[in-house]
Simulated assay, not measured.
Amino acid sequence: MSIELPVSARLAWWGTAWLRGHVVADLVVDAVLGEDATHAVAGLADLGLGGDGTSETLVGGLARLRVEGATWFGAAFPAEGDPVGLGGPRTFNATAIEAGEAVVVGGTDIGLVPVRVGAAVSWVAHRAGRRQLPDVGEADRGLRLALVQTAEALAGLEVARWRPEVADRLMNLRHRPSLTAPAGVPPRCVDLAARGLQASEIAALALEDDGAAVTAYEMAARRQALLPLERAGRRALVAACSPEGWPPG
C-alpha cells in the first residue's frame, strides 16, 4: 500500500537531511513538492529576516533559515483540543490548527504553516515557541494501545456490517504504507510514521460517513471509539517527524 506523507512531514524529513548534509537541495525540492506544481516561502521579511517582502523559492527560503541558525525541521499535526507539536504563541497555534499541520524550525523561533491554493503551497512564516513532544517510544506504545482498543470497540459496534473496508484494514495492519525516507531518519521513525498514517487513514475512513448508523447514539459511539485512534496516529506522526526527539544513533 502506498500513501503520501503530509507535506509538513516531507519538509521535516528532507529539510533536516539537507541541513545535516545527507542530501542536496534538488532532492529536497523533488521530495517536498511531490505532485505539487510549486512551493514558496512567505513572511520571512516580516520577521526581520531580510528580503524585500515578496515570496521566495523553497530553496531560497530554506537557505535563509539555515543562515539564521536552523538545525532541523520538525512537523506538527495539531487538532482542536490537541495542539500536539506546537509551543505557541496563540497566533501560530491557531493558524497551524486551522491548516492541520505546520513545521517548527529548530535553532530559531520560527514556524512555517503550509497554505495550499490549488497545486501551489505557500509556507507562511510565524514566530514559534519551544514545544514539548511525545517521544518515539511513548508515541509507539500509545498507537499500539489505541489500535487494540479501537479494534475491540468497533467489533462491539459491528464495524464489519457498516464499514467492511475498515474491518479489513484493522485485520491487515501488517500491510502498512511504504514510505521513502532520506538518510538520517531512524528506521524506527520510518516505521512509526507508516503506522501513524495507517491509523489516521483508518479513522478518517470510518468517520467519513455516519449514514450507516441508525441512531444518534450509534454515531456518537462510533466517533468515541475512533477519535483516540485518530489522536494516536497524529501523535505518532509528530514523534516520527521531529528530529529533536529522535533516538540517538
Rank of each mutant, 00 (worst) to 15 (best):
L227H: 04
V166K: 06
A206W: 08
G81H: 10
A220S: 14
E4M: 12
V185R: 06
G249H: 06
A119R: 12
Q132F: 13
R174P: 03
R234A: 02
P83I: 06
D82S: 05
G211A: 09
G15E: 02
L143M: 00
A203L: 15
Q224I: 09
N172E: 03
V29Y: 03
V238M: 11
A31G: 02
R141Y: 13
R90E: 04
P186T: 08
P182W: 15
V84K: 01
G85M: 11
E98K: 11
V23D: 01
A236V: 01
T95Q: 07
V113F: 07
A194G: 13
V32Q: 08
A204Y: 05
E165C: 07
G249A: 14
A232C: 07
V29C: 06
G211C: 04
A216N: 13
V148K: 10
E158T: 08
G15D: 06
R64M: 13
V59M: 01
A76P: 03
G142I: 07
A139W: 02
V148L: 09
A37M: 14
G88M: 15
S8M: 04
L133T: 07
C241E: 07
A199C: 05
A42F: 04
G156Q: 15
E35D: 15
T150L: 12
R234P: 01
L133C: 15
R222I: 06
G15R: 07
A70F: 13
T150A: 15
A153E: 04
V23S: 01
Q198A: 10
I97E: 11
D140H: 11
G211S: 04
A9L: 00
L170N: 01
A151Q: 15
V148H: 15
R222S: 09
R141A: 08
V23Y: 00
A240G: 02
V121L: 13
C189S: 01
P247L: 03
N172L: 05
W72H: 15
A40R: 15
L192E: 07
A151E: 09
V24L: 05
A212V: 06
A119P: 08
V214W: 13
G50E: 11
Y217F: 13
G60L: 00
L205W: 05
D46P: 00
P134N: 06
V117M: 10
P83Q: 09
A239E: 02
G60E: 06
A70S: 14
W18E: 00
L154V: 09
L33Q: 10
V159L: 14
V41N: 01
L147F: 01
G48Q: 00
T16R: 00
